[in-house]
């Protein structure tokens, strides 16, 4: 549980979306935007508000790669592993970075500063290889610039 978890805030977020058609994904996005991940308690509140089972909500939350059941590091670096980035050496750069940092895909650094995740295409395929750090994209990344993106926040 992180410091900012608040059942009241979660309930407010959920009720703000109840007027939408098919509100579950927007609710899960909004909860994760607020809390950084989806606390179990938040899923229970969503299930109650939508009058569906907890299993249904868990099924949806666990289906989509974007949704987290655990808090990530303070910064998230998503490195593209798809074909266009591979053609420009992106995979080699990513593997080299992970091995230098002693991390595997999806892992968080010991100091909790950085989580490195794979992403499959950022739509910047003519200026590969690419990555996205905390929502900001970076293109034409060689090994050094990719490593700098990680080191700057470690």
């Amino acid at each position: 549980m992180t410091d900012n978890w608040s059942p009241e805030r979660a309930k407010d977020i959920i009720s703000a979306h109840l007027g939408l058609e098919g509100p579950l994904l927007p609710i899960l996005h909004a909860l994760q935007d607020e809390f950084g991940y989806l606390p179990r308690e938040a899923l229970v509140l969503a299930a109650e508000a939508l009058n569906i089972t907890r299993a249904d909500v868990h099924g949806v939350a666990s289906f989509y790669p974007d949704f987290r059941s655990q808090p990530p590091g303070r910064h998230v670096l998503k490195i593209c592993r798809a074909e266009a980035c591979q053609s420009m050496g992106g995979e080699e750069n990513a593997e080299a970075l992970l091995s230098r940092l002693g991390l595997s895909w999806g892992a968080t650094s010991a100091n909790g500063a950085l989580t490195i995740e794979p992403v499959y295409c950022l739509g910047l395929c003519a200026t590969a290889p690419n990555a996205q750090r905390d929502g900001q994209a970076f293109a034409r990344l060689d090994a050094e610039r990719l490593e700098a993106l990680a080191r700057e926040v470690l």
Binding site: A82, E83, A84, C85, Y120, C121, G123, L124, C125, A126
Partner: peptide, 8 residues
């Protein structure tokens, strides 16, 4: 939902 690598 343009997920194809190489497409933008």
């Amino acid at each position: 939902d343009e997920g194809d690598s190489g497409s933008y």
